[in-house]
Design a protein around this nucleic acid. Sequence first.
DNA 1: TCCGGTTGTTGAAGCGTTTCGACAACGTTA
DNA 2: TAACGTTGTCGAAACGCTTCAACAACCGGA
Lengths: 335, 335
Amino acid sequence: MVTIADVARHAGVAPSTVSYVLTGKRSISPQTRTKVRESIRLLGYHPHAGARALATSRANVVALVLPLRPGVHLPVLMRFVTAAVTTARRHDMDVLLVTADQGAQGLRRVAGSAQVDGFLVMDVELDDDRVPLLRQMTQPSVLIGRPAAVKGLTCVDLDFEAAGARCVDHLADLGHRYIGFLGAPSVVYQRNTGYAQRTMAGFGAAAMRRGIASTALPAEDDYESVLVSVRSLLRTQPAMTALVVHNEAALGWVAGSLRSLGRRVPDDVAVVAICPDELAEQMQLTSVQLPAEELGRQAMELLVARLNGHPTAALTLLPPKLSGRASTAPRLRRA
Amino acid sequence: MVTIADVARHAGVAPSTVSYVLTGKRSISPQTRTKVRESIRLLGYHPHAGARALATSRANVVALVLPLRPGVHLPVLMRFVTAAVTTARRHDMDVLLVTADQGAQGLRRVAGSAQVDGFLVMDVELDDDRVPLLRQMTQPSVLIGRPAAVKGLTCVDLDFEAAGARCVDHLADLGHRYIGFLGAPSVVYQRNTGYAQRTMAGFGAAAMRRGIASTALPAEDDYESVLVSVRSLLRTQPAMTALVVHNEAALGWVAGSLRSLGRRVPDDVAVVAICPDELAEQMQLTSVQLPAEELGRQAMELLVARLNGHPTAALTLLPPKLSGRASTAPRLRRA
DNA sequence: TCCGGTTGTTGAAGCGTTTCGACAACGTTA
DNA sequence: TAACGTTGTCGAAACGCTTCAACAACCGGA
């Protein structure tokens, strides 16, 4: 291995000088600087990461804690990861992969051994058992998701409440007065998932605000159950002309269910989905996106900020973005 | 930070003794051992990874080089990653995430700075530009996939040739005598992808061996084109009673195409797919699996072996496994 | 009783960086 | 000309660990 001493010898300077050329923490004359740079290039020198970590007590590595369990939507996860890694690299950081199944134990390990300078934790739940640990660790962390209490943390999430409201507003602006809500499977509401409840809450509040009649039901993951839910929504509220769907698995069956009940999309019933953009694109559904890249990028930027000692807000909510598509095409009949 | 010196002081021994307790490289009396262990626990000591890396010139980290570009089948990738990470952890190693877009440059960086002890590179192509670099690096590497020349490397891959042959054998055993092959989009064969060609080769050779008439065609990613290919196969070989499909995107349209041409699955035409198991499961297709977990596990085990100085084979091919499902149900008419 | 061989423990030297204090060399100003 | 700040460079001391050579203490055998 070629060390800083080798470079120093080759360039005819002291090791410390080489170090200063590299870090720029002291002024170095242009001559020596180029001389040193040349030697570095010639010898193919790379600073030893471990030695550097030891001397600076900074590893320049962040841990990315990923939920690799079934049920997470992988395309979204991937886009998130890519964005996070890219952003980290832009700040000269590397990313250590920690799977969520290693649990709090795993976090303690990498934190304790000073392998990483900080944590990016995905898929945080309302009362996540990792949160207390993260709070008391010396290394900073940024969470994707929104636990019950964000005090003392740094969290990033889509503003699901606003997302629910955005759907209502879009539909209300198009003239709809009776709107249904097809939610996640009921277990999701029982479990403490937070984002599902918040979307519902935003939806309900916006409907009230706009004087719109709304009905909500959960939907399970199979065609039968989607059909049952949709039928039941229509029975409860026969005048319903629009449907907000917050359930990726159900999306594929919504149009079919409606059709089999004699309603066409968008002529009889308009549909707005809250889901990853590519899904919506594929099915030509008007949708509120899940801004994976943006979340990943922001989260990493916040983490870097904290690593550099800058204070950050406890909660950063990304505003929802709605993309209009065929499923809420302007309705001539209504205009 | 609590250091080894703190532990030593607390336990009333020398730092080296603590080290030996931890590494087990010298015999330590049971008394001191328990005493030291107790102090470690009490003080919550974790060895500093950087310091350790510096002293041992071993980081206990391997780089996982992932293709995060569109087109890779994410569920398979994820299962692979999970297996690799789990296996690494079992050997007390951590995993540094390197995205393929960082290219050879990125590999050089993490290798040069001694951040990692080895590389696990996914999705290697026939003439991958990273291969020369990997070959000359001091750190060992294991590749998933199969470049043109494997000499001096360690590669793991599914035995695609055997997979193609396995499909033929399965169908031949069921009594089929005229078999078609629906391949990947033609660009895949133009590009140097290797595995596609090898599957074809295995398929063709096995057909010859069993005295079976075979016809092969590529298929693009849309319904129209699948339909055209299937029709063309049937026209070329009207007696065709079985189809081998090596094209994940086309899978969903194969049954439909056949039906629209008046053939039912499996009664008129049996179908065998080469694809991830869950896809096959979902469509109830007899299939040869892509053993993601097994590949990940094996690859990491091989890497660990090389890190420990054990020699490894240049090429490890996993035998294909066929799962029988409804699409090749035993045919009463034929029996 | 003395010697050779274990066994358990230690002190110190290194691993490759960074960084602090020191200090020449140099222009500037008094 | 003397004193002084600046600028550029250096030497040495950390950082926290491993490991080697050395050694004390003990045991059994001659």
